[in-house]
Design a protein around this nucleic acid. Structure first.
Lengths: 341, 341
DNA sequence: CTGTTAGCGCCTTCAA
DNA sequence: TTGAAGGCGCTAACAG
């Protein structure tokens, strides 16, 4: 029961209603003594500010929507958390929805957020999102929005890792090892992040005479089991590449497991590398070479961009903020030696 | 701009305002033809339901608040996701806040959720939460709430793993191995979950003549690095127990790493076990013995309980729902053999 | 610094 | 089935 209203407070404190309202905003035109009295009344009466009413009136909800595919993956979890941090600092509350990579669900979630009058929206789009349709839905709403970690086309604000660069960094490192063949365990098909990583990597190794054997795709929910399965498929196909590059560190856990199951030592018999640098990766045995993609920096930048859009309105040109990745060279690649001289 | 209102829609469709309102609720008293016409008008005009207004009027926000410490830990992530799933199915939106185990922040977050008029609240309390104070804050609000995964005292609704049982299960297994000494890497002090696990475990092994060497506590943000550090402290102290029991699987990753760094093979030279059974644990090398605590079942049950409380009001007696854990026996314990005959 | 006023968009009741 | 009316609690604008 948000029973106690500002009216009750103002009567109890013996001030006008507008004064009470100004106290809420800590307006400097009100003397400290009055503020104190009003606040004491609020406390005494157990007053709770009714933001629904304020939103209705002022057309500002002080809420941000976040739609992500899922967050069991630590990388996404970190994104969500840092975004919430940015929102919290600015006084915003985060409305969180998981699309679970389901298009209908994603659409419903976004519509519900619009019903709630979010001041801005962050979308980590589901893998198969149809660009034109989504564009219509988002733009039609007039609500500022930013795409996170995955994009579709270029006509939107976007914040994510520089995945092409990440691929290149890893490609250059792999080339320097003297490897002859690489297999990529590719993560979800049809996400920009996945394609860019593979693009950058492939381009980067193509000059070095390295054979990139056909990729093993992984379904969109990427976890250790998927990595193990993809590795099994690869090896069952009769290929034993010099290097396995996994779409993400989480997948690499499964790669390690499957290699061990077949008597192959990762980092010795076969080099392994991945992307993201989640906290556990340096504690893998052997420590995993990976490309750090700094999800907390991405989430923060995303929050800041969105808040700027909310404050300043729709810009003429959209911003693509790419967070620079960093290669983390560890034993899973450097302790490996080429078999062929 | 939620500019288009129900009034606009009703005028466009040539029906009364109350009819348009009833169509929103899919009221059976309205003929299908009328519904169709009204819905067409909504679509054509780009009508967006204004839930702020509805909330103000009806005193139901159709929103649930969730305050968790953090979710980079996969266990918590799963909790949050399954809870969101339950909320989504019932038409509720989830407002998510991270306390980051910070008491001031936790309080602010809860107050903000009340301002937003959440119909119910789920709290995974920060480690040092003061029971009396929190009790006052929550009860004072009149908003139904459920504690998740950690509790304080008994006078609340609570859903979590049966942590005592989890400890007992693991203790019984460890006893059966013929181990003589165990060290517990204890996770956050002062959470009910941590204490219960240790309690159950200790009680269960106490009859078997197993020495429980002093625990190494881990700070509240538990990740692989913390596990490695705690292991280092333990071994630096000159103790080499037969078994290390970690507070959670995430910590065990660090335990493995530190053991390897010192030339000790987990599962062979020393047994290792933990709690939670996150997806990566069966893919560790060696696969990790652990007690599955089913976070998705917990999240779901929590959501259902809260929705029931919202529907039925405050009950006479509170419910403690404990999800039964299951022991997962894997190589990290069973491949170990006692040194002393 | 105060008081007054007029809504924000929806829900609900009541009478037609 | 419909139309009219009142109000949820707050904000914003303006005149005192």
């Amino acid at each position: 029961m948000g029973r106690i209203t500002l009216k009750d407070v103002s009567e109890h404190a013996g001030v006008s209603r507008s004064t009470a309202s100004l106290v809420l905003n800590d307006d400097p035109s009100i003397p400290e003594v009055t503020k104190k009295r009003v606040r004491a009344s609020m406390l005494e009466l157990g007053y709770v500010y009714n933001r629904q009413a304020a939103t209705l009136r002022s057309q500002k909800s002080m809420a941000l929507g976040l739609v992500v595919t899922e967050i069991r993956n630590e990388y996404f979890a970190e994104l969500a958390m840092s975004l919430e941090g940015a929102a919290y600092e600015a006084g915003y509350t985060l409305l969180l929805c998981y699309s679970r990579d389901d298009l209908r669900r994603q659409e419903t979630q976004i519509e519900r957020l619009f019903e709630r009058g979010v001041d801005g929206l962050v979308l980590l789009p589901a893998a198969e999102t149809e660009p034109a349709k989504m564009d219509l839905l988002l733009r039609g709403s007039q609500v500022p929005f930013v795409l996170l970690a995955r994009h579709f086309g270029l006509e939107h604000d976007y914040v994510g890792a520089d995945n092409i660069r990440a691929g290149e960094l890893l490609g250059a490192h792999i080339s320097s090892l003297g490897a002859r063949s690489v297999s990529i365990l590719g993560g979800p098909a049809s996400t920009s992040a996945g394609l860019e990583r593979i693009d950058g990597f492939t381009r980067s190794v193509s000059g070095a005479g390295i054979e990139v054997v056909p990729e093993q795709r992984i379904t969109s929910h990427t976890n250790a089991s998927d990595g193990a399965r993809a590795t099994a498929r690869l090896l069952d196909g009769g290929t034993l590449p010099d290097v396995i590059v996994a779409y993400s560190d989480v997948i690499a856990v499964g790669v390690y497991a499957e290699l061990h199951a077949r008597g192959l030592r990762p980092g010795t018999d076969i080099a392994v590398a991945a992307f993201d640098d989640i906290p556990g990766s340096e504690h893998q045995v052997p420590p995993l070479t990976t490309v750090a993609t700094f999800p907390s920096a991405i989430g923060l930048a995303c929050g800041e961009l969105l808040l700027r859009r909310i404050a300043e309105g729709v810009p003429e040109s959209y911003s693509h903020t790419l967070i620079e990745p960093q290669l983390r060279i560890r034993a899973s690649t450097v302790s490996w030696r080429p078999r062929h001289g």
